[in-house]
Amino acid sequence: MSDTIPFTIDGVAVEGRPGQTILQAADDAGIYIPRLCAHKELHPFGSCRVCTVKVNGRPQSACTMPCAKGMVVENNTPELLEHRRGLVEMLFVEGNHYCMFCEKSGNCELQALAYRLGIMAPRYPFQFPDRNVDASHPDVLIDRNRCILCARCVRASHDLDGKNVFQFVGRGSKKRIWINAEAKLKDTNLDVTDKAVEICPVGAILKKRQGYAVPVGQRLYDHQPIGSDIEAKRAAAAQA
């Protein structure tokens, strides 16, 4: 086909389509590029930088960079993996991530990424920031201790739900996810069925009365690393 864009990821030939980002083309080709803020139903945002790849030798976020003919992309190199490890470790020390009692544990994308990257302990000192919980809504709660500021809920509420429930306030280490109301989550028009609720990659926005429903051993990332579903596509294609 003439309208495909040939390029390579780690030496593997990939055919992108016009308008696709590197991340989207890689997903279609069955090559997993780690990501946290990117989501297939949302516009690219490029905040977490976990998907950083090298394009012709220069670092770029794969979720925002359109694919171009002949580009040489590096993804699974020791250097980039080390960068990604560092980024994920920073997310861990910057919040209060208590996996042992988190309802999202086992289904959490941040945790799963740490498993996949083989992180045994963060190299940075823990910050233990003082963050709060808003459980005023009858069906949903926000635990800001676990928020990684990926803006998935911001974008999902605005673009998919047609509302505008979430937004950021503050700058730098004081940045927090906040709500479009005077005081509490219960004062917003957020509904438990909103996409913004289920799209949270971590345990920051949770549906109430759903915790620990799936037993340990049957959760999403208990046996297969995150990204296995994408990589399975390539393995299946290679067998065919």
Binding site: F92, N96, H97, Y98, C99, M100, F101, M120, A121, F126, F128, P129, D130, R131
Partner: peptide
């Protein structure tokens, strides 16, 4: 374990 590595439950007092 988590407490040795991250502080764990006792570290909840850190804030």
């Amino acid at each position: 374990g988590e407490c040795a590595i991250c502080g764990g439950i006792p570290a909840m007092r850190n804030t």
